[in-house]
Design a protein around this nucleic acid. Structure first.
Lengths: 201, 201
DNA sequence: TAGATTGTTAATCGATTAACAATC
DNA sequence: TAGATTGTTAATCGATTAACAATC
């Protein structure tokens, strides 16, 4: 898992290198640019197979493709957004989901204020129609940007409706056996930041 | 550092317990509620001093106060927001900064569209006045929600103006020796999530 | 062939868990 | 005193780093 969290960093760098028409790179050069040790990089890349060539290094475009494939960038992921408040809105407007292999196929909220409005070109629907929607459109994952108190119940319901993954922006813990859960812990991050700041003073 | 990232979790739970008028708790009970081992919890809490009492456990309110103090929640932190796009707006609207010991004292952007508007009750200023502002108001930290390409330069400039900490929402790396840096890696998180989803299929 | 660089094994380091003596 | 639970040391585990043989 520690390795996997580094893969996006490799991928980003390799994409940049490819744009600059760099064709080969050694673990040493990667090390300089990424701040990991060359040893760790070779170790990491070998977990998924020998992508390098002794005496030569790694082919940038091949390696990028391999890592992209490992990350699952080959196939699209259909998602819904649950909670169209400030954070939900920002995420939709901020991320060019469609460019990066995500299909945002539905947005849901309970507030009369936002139901019926559009966000990122998609209409916001009432939570009441969520069940029907899932049965017909079968979204694979959900962005959870609703109030913390509802997150567990919401995840349970969605999992029951076939939604197997949750990108969780609330401070709540999701406990749904079998589900893929990735948390963005804004409050915890901010508190850790504060700790660092108070130490630095 | 691994310990510190757990402190906010302890703090959140202890706050909840305090609200429920729980006065004492053992490492074992904490273990159940947090999903860490009791051993780890005792180890963690002992890094910062013996807050417990043998045969009794921990006093909820005392422990909460101690952890709060370690996290630096006693004193306020003055911050500015740099970049008032979708994400910046959402953060300001989403977080009740003032409730949690943060003073948001300024917002800066370069777009004519947002300069002069208000956000969370604060006027958005032009980047051109940032220097003057920092010299007089002396913000301690900055939320960086500007385009990735500008983040390094911006952090360097701000550090030079006395801003010592950066809560970074861009995908860029900040390299400013001496600064406190806490990253929120949305894209990396989303890619990791995608990896998990593609594995689960 | 000589030089470079990987793949892979072994050593180190740090963090987690287990165990238990200290003590409330 | 007996029971409970911490503080703390020792053992384990996993991840990182170092070393080097394999090989392009």
């Amino acid at each position: 898992m520690a390795v996997i969290r580094r893969l996006p960093k490799y991928y980003r760098l390799l994409s940049a290198l490819e744009r600059k028409d760099t064709t080969r790179i050694s673990s040493h050069e990667l090390s300089e640019k990424l701040g990991f040790t060359a040893s760790q990089i070779r170790q990491d890349l070998n977990v998924f197979g020998g992508f390098g060539q002794q005496g030569y290094g790694y082919r940038v475009s091949d390696l990028k493709r391999e890592i992209g494939s490992i990350l699952g960038l080959d196939s699209n992921l259909s998602m819904i957004l649950v909670g169209a408040g400030n954070l939900g809105k920002a995420l939709i407007n901020h991320f060019p989901f469609w460019q990066s292999g995500f299909d945002l196929i539905g947005i849901f909220d309970v507030s009369e204020k936002v139901i019926g409005t559009t966000l990122g070109g998609i209409e916001v629907f009432s939570g009441a129609v969520l069940e029907d929607f899932c049965r017909t459109k079968k979204p694979e994952a959900a962005i959870l940007a609703l109030p913390t108190e509802f997150v567990q119940k919401s995840a349970e319901q969605l999992y029951g409706l076939g939604v197997k993954g949750f990108w969780n922006f609330t401070d709540g813990d999701i406990n749904v056996p079998g589900a893929c859960i990735e948390d963005i812990r804004l409050v915890e991050s901010l508190m850790t930041f504060r700790f660092m700041m108070s130490r630095a003073k």
